[in-house]
């Protein structure tokens, strides 16, 4: 038995199975995961690791475990989407911890949520004065959503009755030096127009461009592979000649 070869094959099976299964489970940002989702993720990863390297168990049994766990998570996802009641039962509900500027101590105590944690999460949202807060909601993913009192909210163009231009999604016309013809057609432009714009910016070939984007105002943003920056900022801390002595 060639153990190295077996580990290579089983690792490839585990890797691509995990890839397929996570695609089935869909997109969910890590920051949006509930505690239960997080534990599920760890368990699925742990089973996949065992499938790859634990040669004392049959590959199929580990794989079936992985499939059942993924299937259970998928089933819960479907059920929670269909039923709001079950969703609340499984994932919990957002809890209001500051209501009309008042801290809900009893609710916080019930949730074992400390005052220091509340203040920390407010600071993370650049709120250092709790009197600015009208409502704060502790979400099921552990994040805090804050609604400031209207007098502390930033002024918007609407407040000032200023008309604004429409702003939509920018179209990527060149990506990694390759012209994306489909996007060009969608904005009713052609390659000749693009080449003309590139020449106007001193670029002879699209392959010199890393990214070219057209915004809804018709402005073309071009970033070349070769960047000529007079004084590049260095934020590295590994070696600073001024502090090196």
């Amino acid at each position: 038995m060639n153990e190295v070869l077996v580990v290579i094959v089983r690792s490839l099976i585990a890797f691509f199975t995990l890839l397929i299964f996570t695609r089935i489970l869909g997109k969910q940002e890590v920051s949006q995961l509930t505690f239960f989702d997080y534990i599920n993720g760890i368990t699925i990863g742990s089973i996949a690791a065992s499938l790859a390297t634990n040669l004392n168990s049959r590959a199929l049994t580990e794989w079936v475990g992985l499939g059942v766990w993924t299937g259970a998570v998928f089933a819960l996802q479907v059920i929670t989407v269909k039923s709001r009641y079950i969703s609340k039962y499984i994932n919990g509900e957002p809890i209001v911890v500051i209501m009309n500027g008042k801290i809900m101590e009893a609710t916080m105590k019930k949730m074992r949520y400390q005052m220091s944690e509340l203040l920390e999460q407010l600071r993370e949202k650049s709120i250092f004065d709790i009197s600015q807060v009208e409502f704060a909601v502790f979400e099921v993913n552990g994040k805090l959503s804050v609604l400031k009192k209207s007098s502390y909210q930033p002024v918007t163009p609407k407040n000032l009755n200023i008309s604004t231009d429409y702003e939509g999604l920018s179209a990527e016309l060149i990506y990694n030096g390759v012209v994306i013809e489909q996007n060009l057609n969608q904005v009713n432009l052609d390659r000749n127009w693009l080449e003309q714009q590139l020449r106007a910016n001193g670029i002879n070939d699209p392959s010199e461009v890393m990214l070219a984007q057209l915004n809804t105002q018709g402005e073309l943003y071009i970033d070349k592979y070769r960047d000529y920056v007079a004084n590049p900022a260095d934020i590295s801390e590994r070696y600073n000649p001024k502090e090196g002595q």
């Binding site: 038995m1 060639n2 153990e3 077996v6 094959v9 089983r10 004392n56 049959r58 590959a59 199929l60």
Partner: peptide, 15 residues
């Protein structure tokens, strides 16, 4: 046979 079944069988079964 070991060469054919090693990717699915338990190591302990083979050993």
């Amino acid at each position: 046979v070991v060469n054919r079944i090693q990717f699915g069988a338990e190591r302990e079964e083979i050993n």
